[in-house]
């Protein structure tokens, strides 16, 4: 393992370890000579074992941020440290190992492999990780059962509804028991009930297995389960706050009606 390049900054919660840290993260795209700045300098620390929600309007750079901290794309400027290791220093093999074993991704557009069945989609990361096919199938079926698609394991993505595809994507992200789960709007296409089930799964993973969960969402129920919230706007962090503080605000202002309603519904 590579030695930490930078000493961790003083953490707000002293006993917690910083798992992911970004320093001056910038990303810009050049398309047809037009420069789009998706991220304009992000400095965040995400602690091991926490559940953090990332919120922000469409086009604010949430997905871009995910790609950066998930080691799926290289930043234009700045650095990403995962467990104090600079991602830019990793070799191709180490990156593959990281993506395969340590991070689970749920993409906004699912990115399922179209010609594979649900089960094969789920077992593909296991195959890359060296799990034997029989064992992989067994584990894949168990995970599909968790997301409620056990009966549909043989369906191809085109034969499934958007919500079902999303659940296959969630199942796939759990294939190798990751330490970090990056979820890009994991409940966007699900009805209230199924969305709640998925949230429960995420919460359980977070509480029982101490999986770090980073979750982009517009779903305000997320507020009831996450530890911290982070608002992004125009590629910058607008605000990071602990859930308790935010709930008090919403309670006192009562401005965001839908949000308040959603949190009331979700809170027993």
């Amino acid at each position: 393992m590579i030695a930490p390049a930078v000493q961790p900054l003083a953490a707000p919660v002293a006993e917690r370890r910083v798992l992911i840290r970004t320093v001056g993260l910038k990303k810009s795209y050049v398309k047809k000579g037009i420069l789009t700045e998706a991220l304009r300098g992000l400095d965040v620390e995400i602690y091991a074992g926490e559940f953090i929600s990332v919120m922000g309007p469409s086009g604010s750079g949430k997905s871009t941020f995910f790609n950066m901290i998930g080691a799926l794309d290289s930043p234009s400027q700045g650095r990403v440290f995962i467990d104090e290791v600079d991602v830019a220093q990793l070799t191709a093999e180490e990156l593959a190992y990281l993506r395969c074993q340590k991070i689970g991704y749920i993409f906004q557009s699912y990115n399922l492999i179209q010609y594979m069945t649900a089960l094969e989609n789920v077992t593909t990361p296991m195959a890359f990780g060296g799990v034997q096919p029989d064992e992989a199938r067994r584990r894949g079926m168990r995970i599909l059962e968790i997301v409620g698609l056990k009966e549909r394991w043989f369906h191809r993505p085109i034969e499934m509804s958007g919500g079902q595809q999303q659940r296959v994507a969630i199942a796939r992200s759990l294939a190798n028991n990751p330490s970090v789960l990056l979820c890009d709007e994991p409940t966007a296409n699900l009805d209230l009930h199924t969305g709640q089930e998925i949230l429960d799964i995420l919460v359980r993973l977070n509480k029982e297995q101490r999986v770090t969960i980073i979750c982009a969402t517009h779903d305000h129920r997320m507020m009831n389960v996450c530890d911290r919230l982070m608002w992004v706007r125009d590629g910058r962090i607008e605000r990071i706050a602990r859930r308790e503080d935010v709930k008090i605000e919403i309670g006192s202002i009562g401005g965001k009606r839908d949000a308040a309603k959603a949190s009331k519904e979700a809170t027993p």
């Binding site: 798992l19 091991a48 467990d83 190992y97 395969c100 330490s179």
Partner: peptide, 9 residues
């Protein structure tokens, strides 16, 4: 808590 130990794939 799950630590992240990076190896070669």
């Amino acid at each position: 808590m799950k630590p992240i130990v990076i190896q070669e794939q």
